[in-house]
Design a protein around this nucleic acid. Structure first.
Lengths: 126, 126
DNA sequence: GCGCTGATTTGACAGATATCTAATCAGGGC
DNA sequence: GCCCTGATTAGATATCTGTCAAATCAGCGC
């Protein structure tokens, strides 16, 4: 009966994840748990117009086109991105709500009165 | 002042992730990209006192003790949890700052005028 | 139609991973 | 010391995954 931890933690640390939720989220996480796919997602999301042509993406990696295509398919199958063919080129864009689902699992619930943002974590450590 | 894209997106969609950051985050993500490890993390975090004995965890799964031990090791090696032996039992607890690092990647930056929380996503979909 | 470029699919393969059994380590009680 | 319980390590194995080369598909221009 210790209710002291109601608003302290990330959802994953507040109550036990059900098995089905765990399976669902793990599938999503597996899709992004790869350096290439993380960078693909990032490149697509930060590209001008919110979408990127495959040709823009391939150059950023030392990988063959089929490999990039494979990774894009993994992201698309997971529901994180979608694509459309426009003439010769195929364009990809992020589905923000699905990306947010990932963040929601791990981000501490913001308490009114905290700093500006919900989390203030150093990402770039190089 | 109102630059349309400054506060719109998750960090991963705001600017391209560097390769080293991608590798670092992918390692973290790979650790949680498994249903068993997700539930372990959740069980540990939501357990009374913020820590859980291995004996508490093993019963929640249809897996052998060595397998649970393996998964705990993966989480610990990634830096997401830590452990301590106390007499006969070994206790595990979450390292919140590392968990928050995961969330920070995918959580849209909250705008001061947005709804209550930074993200409002349905997690339980069965 | 033909050839060219962009992108995906297929097939193959090396490396990683999740799981188990058996063995080992760590404390506590006798 | 000896045994019992809790937990980890070691070894083995079946499966999954990331990558590439080769083949195929999709538009476009001639």
């Amino acid at each position: 009966m210790t209710d002291a931890t109601i608003t302290c933690c990330a959802p994953i640390a507040r109550e036990p994840l059900s098995e089905s939720d765990a399976v669902e989220m793990a599938a999503l996480l597996k899709a992004v748990a790869d350096p290439v796919r993380l960078r693909l997602l990032s490149l697509i999301g930060s590209h001008a117009g919110g979408e990127a042509c495959v040709c823009d993406l391939t150059d950023a990696f030392d990988l063959t086109a089929p490999t990039i295509s494979h990774h894009l398919k993994v992201l698309r199958t997971a529901g994180l991105i979608d694509s459309e063919r426009r003439g010769t080129w195929v364009y990809y864009w992020i589905i923000p709500s699905v990306v947010a689902k990932l963040g929601a699992l791990f981000t501490p619930l913001s308490e009114p009165g905290a700093a500006s943002g919900p989390v203030d974590v150093e990402l770039v450590t190089a």
